[in-house]
Design a protein around this nucleic acid. Sequence first.
DNA 1: CGAATACTGAGCCACGCGGCTAAGTATTGG
DNA 2: CCAATACTTAGCCGCGTGGCTCAGTATTCG
Lengths: 110, 110
Amino acid sequence: MAQYSARLDDVFIALADPTRRGVIRRLGEGPASVGDLAATFPMTLPSFLKHVRTLEAAGLIRTAKAGRVRTCELNRERLAVVDDWLAEQRRVWEERTDRLERLVTEENPP
Amino acid sequence: MAQYSARLDDVFIALADPTRRGVIRRLGEGPASVGDLAATFPMTLPSFLKHVRTLEAAGLIRTAKAGRVRTCELNRERLAVVDDWLAEQRRVWEERTDRLERLVTEENPP
DNA sequence: CGAATACTGAGCCACGCGGCTAAGTATTGG
DNA sequence: CCAATACTTAGCCGCGTGGCTCAGTATTCG
């Protein structure tokens, strides 16, 4: 949970770019090579590769090279980090709602 | 839904910073003034104010000035954008899973 | 073997982000 | 009215991000 939040930044930063979200979406449909992925984005291969590395460093995708082709696939579990953050956030404000309700109950005793 | 995805970037970028996520968390407990919020972060007020503006521009918080104090509060609904994105992503890969299952079914007819 | 393919690495560059200080404005308390 | 308070604006600055080109490496195909 500690190293976890330490890397929360990496995940959100990785998601804060339309190209990288595009890659994630595409990989949701199945694995693809760097070249095939890059072909669907308006930039050069070296530029695109940086995005792949960013996603990989954030743990959102895994890549492996076979011959001269590097294949990328989604690491679905990693997105749970975002889910967890949202859940935690909701927990915080639901606690507040509970406190407010108790307050109202105390002020208007039955 | 169009202007929606146009601003997806703003939301993810806003969340890609620990200070701003900290503000969101704090505001989950209830509204607070800019000064009170800033006091809990290791930076100057002008620097902090930029984060507030970023969150406001992303629609994640609302602010209003009363007298010389600006009060901030969370706009919970806005976080649904993230939820929606996650849901859409899951839809994509569940479709793929379905396709794979159909494929297996066709290859191994009952 | 030689050419084509698919990355990969190095290095450059413009821009924007996130910090700062200093000075300005609007309210409020005494 | 004056001083303190609470922002707000303006402007500077260093660094990282995201794009590019160009050259290099490793595979594969004919």
